[in-house]
Design a protein around this nucleic acid. Structure first.
Length: 422
RNA sequence: GGAGAAAUGGCAGAGUGGUCGAAUGCGGCGGUCUUGAAAACCGUUGAUCCGCAAGGGUCCGGGGGUUCGAAUCCCUCUUUCUCCGCCA
């Protein structure tokens, strides 16, 4: 969430930022500041009453110790009114605080100055494209047909065991998945990321910390009996490692990478978007996360963007990078780059990575701070990106590398798969 | 799953109703000494909220309660440890 300091210091800029994010209630900003003013006034009164109470208590204690019971009892009688005042003021204070937080949590993150206005994916800006789009001299098959033809992914079997969106990978399909995970993790390790194997199930506090809760709980699979959720991405458990943490400046940046299965309900999706591997309820992903000094987070965002580009380059997949417009940038992000690969038989771009700087938006919720060399504490910046999400990479690999005699995979994967072709 | 014990500052560890935000030790930081370092000695060292400041409020696993007053008493939740059972 945004800091009150920002709302107060840059009220009008915040409202402009909200407009770029297509957030329609700019009046919330003023309401929040007003509630905070009320809260502060209430705190002053309450603290004053509490101080009087503390003084009275000490006097009573002193009276008892000097054996003056009568005086003690007399003082005691006077504390009743104070006690009542404190109770009332505390309740009012807490109510104002709660009302303020309830509104504050509704505000999305501020967009970075480079983020342009826009309503939807249509308005995203392509900032880079590279790689050759394959041409076929034969009729190229979409990946779901290739998967059936070579018997490497069984969608029907997944339907039987669980339901739609839970495919079963078999033989070389399973091995290829494992190869991609190994490849992505090794590359992350080479880039200085510490590999993490996080829990796949999270509690409410963690969901709140990264912003999935309270509003997006419908997108996660829930285990209500235990108040737990299946992770929609490793971002949640990995970033929450740093919840309520105070880092030292010289520990920065923290770089973590994690492979995990990801679970998403994806309610309301339909049609060609969900065909084959395009959109699943369970999928694999390697995620990279960094905790950065506020002055360095945008340089680090570029570094992470380059890391992801390097992976796609080595897989020799044609890809493009988009800078998301205000309307398509997520609630929690300040700036997001999406990576899309071209899947040659479907003839469409598929999103395979999203790399974002959340600035202090998540850190503020999580109380993730650092102490600088002067001893001042301030919020850190959090960033993350997919590096990479597997299913659509798999789809593009199958489609783009198909020939009439088989699917010949890119060289970098051979040491991981142990085979050249499918 | 059954029985018992515990949770205090960066760490270790005192404190069982009043001046305790909290002894002491270690660690950290600053200094004296030293050619430099170590040792020794001296000082300092939590977070957060309100306030221009002075100052004040809150925090001893989380939440609630008793009391004029709670780290200390009560309830509850969570976590950890020990023993038994089960088990990849």
């Amino acid at each position: 969430m945004l800091t009150l300091a920002l709302l107060r210091a840059k009220t009008e800029e915040v409202k402009k930022g909200l407009a770029i994010k297509n957030f329609g209630q700019p009046e919330l900003v003023d309401e929040i500041i007003k509630l905070d003013d009320e809260r502060k006034a209430l705190q002053r009164d309450r603290d004053e009453a509490q101080m009087q109470m503390n003084i009275a208590s000490k006097e009573i204690g002193a009276a008892f110790q000097s054996g003056d019971k009568a005086k003690a009892e007399e003082l005691k009688a006077k504390t009743a009114q104070l006690k009542d005042d404190i109770k009332v003021l505390s309740e009012k204070h807490d109510a104002a605080l709660e009302a303020m937080n309830a509104k504050l949590i509704l505000l999305p993150n501020m967009p970075h100055p480079s983020v342009k206005p826009g309503k939807s994916a249509e308005d995203n800006e392509t900032i880079h494209q590279e790689g050759d789009i394959p041409e076929f001299s034969f009729e190229a098959l979409p990946h779901w047909e290739l998967a059936a033809k070579y018997d490497i992914i069984d969608f029907e079997l997944g339907n039987k065991i669980t339901g739609a969106g839970f495919p079963v990978y078999k033989g070389k399909g399973a091995r290829l998945q494992r190869a991609l995970i190994g490849f992505f993790l090794d590359r992350a390790t080479d880039a200085g990321y510490l590999e993490i194997q996080p829990p796949l199930v999270i509690n409410e506090e963690s969901g709140y910390g990264t912003g999935q809760l309270p509003d997006k709980d419908g997108q996660m699979y829930a285990i209500p009996e235990d108040k737990l959720f299946l992770i929609p991405t490793a971002e949640v458990p990995v970033t929450n490692i740093y919840r309520d943490v105070m880092l030292k400046e010289d520990e920065l940046p923290k770089k973590n990478a994690a492979y995990s299965a990801c679970f998403r309900r994806e309610a309301g999706s339909y049609g060609k978007d969900v065909r084959g591997l395009n959109r699943l309820h369970q999928f694999d992903k390697v995620e990279i996360v960094q905790i950065a000094h506020p002055d360095k987070s945008y340089a680090i965002l570029e570094e992470m963007k380059d890391h992801v580009a390097g992976l796609l380059r080595d897989l020799k997949l044609p890809f493009r990078i988009l800078r998301l417009c205000g309307g398509d940038t997520s609630f929690t992000a300040a700036l997001t780059y999406d990576f899309e690969v071209y899947s040659a038989a479907q003839k469409r771009w598929l999103e395979v990575s999203s790399v974002s700087n959340f600035e202090s938006f998540q850190a503020n919720r999580m109380k993730l701070r650092f102490k600088d060399k002067e001893g001042n504490t301030s919020l850190l910046h959090t960033l993350n990106g997919s590096a990479l999400a597997l299913p659509r990479i798999l789809a593009a690999l199958l489609e783009n590398y198909q020939t009439e005699t088989g699917i010949y995979l890119p060289d970098v994967l051979k040491t991981y798969t142990g085979f050249d072709s499918i």
